[in-house]
């Protein structure tokens, strides 16, 4: 069954199609949610919320909304961003105490698998993690991130920079452990 056929069935409210859609895409959407929440428990909650929105949205007006997978990912990302604590905007803008790290990014990153990278991203503070995901994985511009998170562009830039530095440090640490 193609995704379009699934969507048509869901639009008609058919439970079989809804269940198939959930089974087929919950894993993908769970990864997206986990990247933003940093933990599985919250991610599961977000995915369920997002899937409810998707199924409701399908009953109304899907055909106007672009590629199916991307649309579902967008819904999940928005759900995650809305659900997450936004107090980091004021909490995590103090970068003075960040240690200096060497400019080069470690080559060891190439040897890390997806699950390990996921753990690294999950270990970032909330704000860094959100901006890193939006900028690096989703490829959003800083202007788009600023609009979506209701922050100024400079905050987005600086937090992305710091997120990269933290990841850089963590990769180096892992590299040392391996050696």
């Amino acid at each position: 069954m193609t995704v379009e056929e699934l969507f048509i069935g869901c639009r008609k409210g058919k439970a079989l199609h809804q269940k198939t859609l959930v089974e087929r895409y919950s894993s993908m959407l769970f990864s997206v949610a986990k990247r933003y929440t940093g933990n599985e428990y919250d991610a599961q909650d977000i995915v369920q919320d997002a899937l409810v929105k998707i199924l409701k949205g399908l009953k109304n007006n899907y055909k106007e909304r672009g590629k199916p997978e991307q649309w579902m990912r967008t819904i999940t990302i928005n759900t995650a961003l809305n659900a997450m604590d936004r107090s980091w905007v004021s909490r995590e803008t103090d970068f003075e105490n960040m240690p200096d790290v060497p400019g080069d990014y470690p080559d060891a990153i190439a040897e890390l698998g997806a699950e390990e990278l996921m753990e690294l991203v999950a270990s970032l503070p909330d704000g860094y993690r959100q901006i890193f995901n939006l900028a690096v994985i989703e490829n959003f511009s800083h202007a788009e991130i600023a609009e979506r998170l209701d922050i100024v562009e400079s905050t987005s830039r600086s937090q992305l920079l710091r997120a990269r530095k933290i990841l850089q440090m963590k990769v180096r640490e892992q590299e040392k452990i391996r050696i």
Binding site: K19, V22, E23, S26, S27, M28, F30, S31, K34, R35, E40, Q44, V47, Q48, L51, I109, A110, L112, G113, A114, E115, L117, M118, V121, F132, V136, I137, N139
Partner: peptide, 19 residues
Amino acid sequence: HFREKLGEYNSPVDTDAIW
């Protein structure tokens, strides 16, 4: 590296629980 490895990554999840 992050984009390619995480962009299409599917984490294992209990789909029955999600449904």
